[in-house]
Design a protein around this nucleic acid. Structure first.
Lengths: 119, 119
DNA sequence: TCAGATATATTTTTTTGCGATATATTAGGC
DNA sequence: GCCTAATATATCGCAAAAAAATATATCTGA
């Protein structure tokens, strides 16, 4: 499903992971396993649990999400949910992200156009 | 000049650094010290030499750039220049980058809009 | 009944980022 | 003529981060 990613793609992915996870949680609460699948689907990059769970725990420590165990279903699940502080962080992170990207477009796009002309 | 960046901004920066450096070299040859200043100016993020030089050496090993020592000037400099392979890499990296960003916009932007309405 | 998918972690290993450090030349202020 | 700040290139080693490996258990379908 996932072509083994180059180190640079991997870094690109890692650089956007926070924002992606927060954005997915803006849809409503979600549990780790499902979250992983969504991230992989939307980014096309593999997300190891050894990366996801520490990230979620860090978000929890920062007060951006809360975790609630749900054992009522067929299988025990731990739902993560954005707090108001988490929503604020998402807004801020996304704004930062947009601003940074806009800034880089100005460097990268002209350079690519410049070399596109010749071989 | 640079506000000490948060870990997430730092990761974002690292994820784009390869493309940024290649793009700057598309302007023509450049030496490390000047390159660093340009990157910092264009990204607003600090770029330690301990990060830049290993990166340049890796590009060299990969055959993306060539290094030429120039001692004719007032001060010895080592100029780095894109090879044809390096130009190809830049094209590819930039295309990848654009595609990945476009993909993420579809996840992140609606999420931000969704939470923007309420507090 | 047995394999594969679902589900949540932690532990250990590997990789990486970058702070600290080393070295030397030049420009400018006093 | 002396000292500081800036210019210039680089490496080393540690701390932090990422991911592979491992542990555990339940559920589903062939």
């Amino acid at each position: 499903m996932h072509t083994d990613p180059s180190p640079s793609r991997r870094r690109l992915f890692r650089g956007s992971l926070e924002v992606v996870v927060l954005a997915l949680l803006a849809d409503g609460r979600a549990y780790g396993y499902a979250l992983r699948q969504q991230v992989e689907q939307q980014t096309g990059q593999p997300l190891p649990f050894g990366t996801l769970y520490p990230l979620l725990h860090r978000f929890e420590t920062q007060g951006w999400i809360t975790a609630t165990s749900d054992t009522s279903g067929k299988r025990p699940r731990k739902y993560y949910e954005l707090t108001p502080a988490g929503r604020a962080s998402l807004r801020k992170a996304a704004a930062d992200w947009q601003a940074y990207l806009a800034r880089l477009q100005a460097t990268v796009l002209p350079a690519v156009r410049r070399i596109a002309a010749r071989g």
